[in-house]
Design a protein around this nucleic acid. Structure first.
Length: 577
DNA sequence: GCCGTTTTCGGCCCGACTGTTTTCAGTCG
């Protein structure tokens, strides 16, 4: 069973969890957490890197000990250190750490004093009134544990960014309307445009008499107020989403925005750079021993470290700080306005909701210059996939519609099934009559990594193959990506001159940010596609653009920023001619 | 456990809020 980076990352995180319970040196624990995060965000597989003779100790934060543990995990699937910890501490105690308000210290005390070894036992102990008997615990803590264990099922889960977006924007707009409010912005992972958010951080600058906190806690009417202070309050909305609000001075807004936007890892490095220069950086500004030298704007905070402003989407400590220092930040991150056309859309001929003409009109109305119609192919029976005859009828209709339109062009395409053996669902003879071919996997997700990779690589080797659709097949929070060697897929795209899709559907966002970065480094263009199944879904483009920005993609890295003539040339290169 | 323009030891980001305290520990972000 080959070991992949996420497996190694999980083991390092588990080690950190257990060491917290053991009250180990917090910096040692942080070293494991950092390593977990680093390995999880690593593009290439550690196993491949080591096989190629590279040493993990070249990675920042991996020293001799962690390198040895990586080798041990690759060889045995685990590490003795973790197995020994598991002998000493029941796994249920680790689960208790996930309960809000319970950290390692208290979980450990509860385990030692009451023998409580999992969340269910903890709840029973709270119900029996046994928690308050322990020194340092009181009735309120017991009550909090009861509430937390009751809510634990419903909360604590990250939700898709598209599900929280509208609610947050409404909240911000209401706060902005309050008399005395100067600014109100969302920070945190929401501002960094992550795929999912765990909670939302809002920042507000307001005059002294402004009733911000009073208004804010009213949003919790159907939920719960978790904390209510002078400068910070936390609420739980009825749907389980936690929202924190921080009231900051307008003169500190930039420092606060930088601080609370994170990521944590990015900020730790930023503050580290500051310390080396004798500067203290916190949410109130950048300070020398005796003066504040920055903080009004985010730009001023970065400038104090001789860095250019770094876009929030890049702040994940994945090389952006070094890139900023060396003037290598992406020059023109992709924006929605750069997108010239849509290359993946469905009509009511298969599982789309709207007609070809309606889809064309809607795309045109959004200012797009071209739209590729890519319905499903025959083997996908469930959605009435097109056979050759219906595909050619659709092509004829496209020709008719194109005649009547100026400044907008429909392209003939197909989202063709990649069959289990890697062949495509139509013969070359049929595919060659189209402008582009998107190949996608919609079946046999459970193939082994070797089989799945071979299947996809074989499909990409096909004479007519333009774009690999939703390359990992994942549905965020619902379906794991199928096992596939994405580094090999990217190499193949580079070799064949074909393209990878970044599916903008917020439930997919497939490619991931890390794989976008790898594609960019390999010089493989990415197509940001909405995969629209109705006219309204063209609006999901922004989620794809956000994801692409997280993957460092610039205008030049994205296929469908090209004007039609250039695009046609690029597509032709993938169609056997 | 990692790291080094303070380099093989001694640091490692830092502040707010809560609860149970009577000056602070634990948790969170």
């Amino acid at each position: 069973m080959p070991i992949h980076n996420p497996d190694i990352a999980d083991i390092f995180d588990a080690l950190a969890d257990y060491l917290e319970i053991e009250d180990e040196n917090p910096f040692k624990i942080r070293a494991y957490r950092n390593a977990a995060r680093l390995v999880r965000g690593l593009g290439p597989e550690l196993a491949d890197m080591i096989a190629a003779g590279e040493s993990p100790t070249d990675l920042p934060g991996i020293g001799k000990d962690l390198a040895a543990k990586i080798a041990e995990i690759l060889a045995t699937g685990t590490t003795r250190a973790l197995e020994e910890l598991k002998q000493r501490i029941p796994a249920g105690v680790i689960d208790m750490l996930r309960i809000p308000g319970l950290g390692p210290k208290r979980a450990s005390i509860l385990y030692r004093e009451l023998g409580v070894a999992d969340p269910a036992a903890l709840r029973a102990a709270a119900e029996a009134g046994r928690i308050r008997s322990i020194a340092g615990f009181g009735a309120k803590t017991e009550q909090a544990i009861l509430q937390a264990t009751a809510a634990a099922v419903a909360t604590g889960k990250r939700v898709g960014i598209a599900q929280v977006g509208p609610r947050i924007e409404t909240m911000l707009n209401e706060l902005r309307r309050l008399p005395g409010v100067i600014r109100a912005e969302a920070a945190g992972s929401y501002r960094r445009c992550r795929e999912t958010v765990g909670d939302v951080d809002l920042l507000v600058a307001a005059g002294a008499e402004c009733p911000v906190m009073e208004r804010f806690v009213e949003f919790a009417a159907a939920g719960q107020v978790l904390a209510r202070g002078e400068t910070k309050s936390s609420i739980l909305l009825a749907n389980g989403l936690q929202v924190d609000l921080r009231l900051v001075a307008n003169s500190d807004f930039g420092a606060a925005l930088q601080y609370f936007t994170g990521s944590k890892a990015h900020n730790v490095r930023i503050r580290h750079i500051g310390r080396r220069r004798g500067l203290k950086i916190n949410e109130y500004g950048v300070f020398t021993l005796d003066a504040r030298i920055a903080g009004e704007t985010e730009e001023s905070v970065y400038r104090a470290l001789d860095l250019p402003w770094i876009p929030p989407e890049l702040r994940e400590d994945r090389g952006e700080i070094d890139a900023a220092a060396e003037g290598r930040l992406p020059g023109e991150l992709i924006e929605a306005a750069h997108i010239q056309g849509e290359l993946h859309a469905h009509t009511d001929a298969t599982d789309g909701r709207d007609t070809l003409a309606a889809m064309a009109a809607a795309a045109r109305k959004r200012g797009l210059r071209y739209l590729a119609v890519t319905d499903h192919s025959q083997t996908l029976r469930m959605v009435d996939g097109l056979d050759e005859r219906r595909l050619m009828e659709q092509a004829d209709e496209i020709d008719r519609l194109n005649e009547g339109m100026k400044g907008f062009t429909l392209l003939k395409g197909i989202e063709v099934e990649i069959l289990e053996d890697g062949s495509l669902d139509f013969p070359d003879r049929v595919l060659q009559r189209l402008d582009l071919v998107i190949g996608s996997v919609h079946s046999r997700f459970q193939l082994s990594r070797e089989q799945q990779t071979a299947r996809i690589l074989r499909a990409m080797d096909h004479r007519c193959f333009s774009i690999l659709g939703h390359p990992s097949g994942r549905l965020i929070g619902e379906r794991a990506p199928y096992a596939v060697d994405m580094a090999a897929v990217i190499r193949k795209a580079q070799e064949r001159g074909c393209f990878l899709e970044l599916n903008a559907n917020p439930a997919r966002l497939d490619l991931t940010d890390v794989h976008c970065q790898m594609a960019r480094e390999a010089g493989v263009l990415v197509a940001i596609d909405t995969d629209a199944h109705s006219t309204a879904e063209f609006g999901q483009l922004r989620y794809g653009v956000n994801q692409a920005r997280r993957g460092w993609l610039e205008k030049k890295d994205v296929l469908n920023t090209r004007p039609l003539a250039t695009l046609k040339k690029l597509l032709k290169g993938t169609m056997g001619g």
